[in-house]
Nucleic acid binder design. Structure first.
Length: 139
DNA sequence: GCCAACGTTGGC
DNA sequence: GCCAACGTTGGC
């Protein structure tokens, strides 16, 4: 299993929106960046990811599971763009802020810190378990 | 609200 | 195929 991070502006698509979709989940559509798309094409059903709020919030708020492999993005006819489907798994007990991530030696090399503009990105197993521990997630 | 960083587009 | 111009994202 691999680990990822999905970034979203809460005003566009928030954790609460994702939770409201329940186990049926929802397409992670609207990605128009090749790097982010390529990562989605690498995903398998069962992969886990963090859900991160960008802009004003800037914090990890929960975990998600990939429930469908990459398929054409239904919001465009442009066949270049694929996306996966994800469902909400678990909310963090306390959100982990970007400042805390930057200040943590284990996490300061995260893609989130190094390439802040990438909206879908890989997370290492070490980063995953460390964040789960810090935020009270069951992994 | 500003601006740096980055990605994309299009002219040459 | 290079690079300038432009648009977008997201942290501050």
């Amino acid at each position: 299993m691999r680990y990822w991070l999905f970034k979203s502006e809460p005003s566009t698509w928030s954790w609460a929106d994702q939770v409201a979709k329940g186990d049926a989940g929802e397409e992670w559509d609207g990605v128009r960046n090749y790097q982010a798309r390529n990562f989605m094409r690498e995903m398998s059903v069962g992969d886990r990811g963090f859900f991160y709020h960008s802009q004003k919030a800037r914090e990890i708020v929960g975990t998600v599971e990939v429930i469908a492999e990459a398929h054409p993005d239904s919001t465009t006819d442009d066949e270049r763009w694929d996306c996966v489907d994800i469902r909400a798994l678990e909310a963090v007990r306390t959100p982990l802020s970007l400042d805390e991530i930057k200040g943590d030696p284990v996490l300061s090399e995260m893609v989130l810190v190094k390439n802040s503009r990438l909206s879908v990105q890989p997370v290492t197993e070490a980063e995953w378990s460390h964040i789960c521990k810090r935020t009270g997630l069951s992994t």
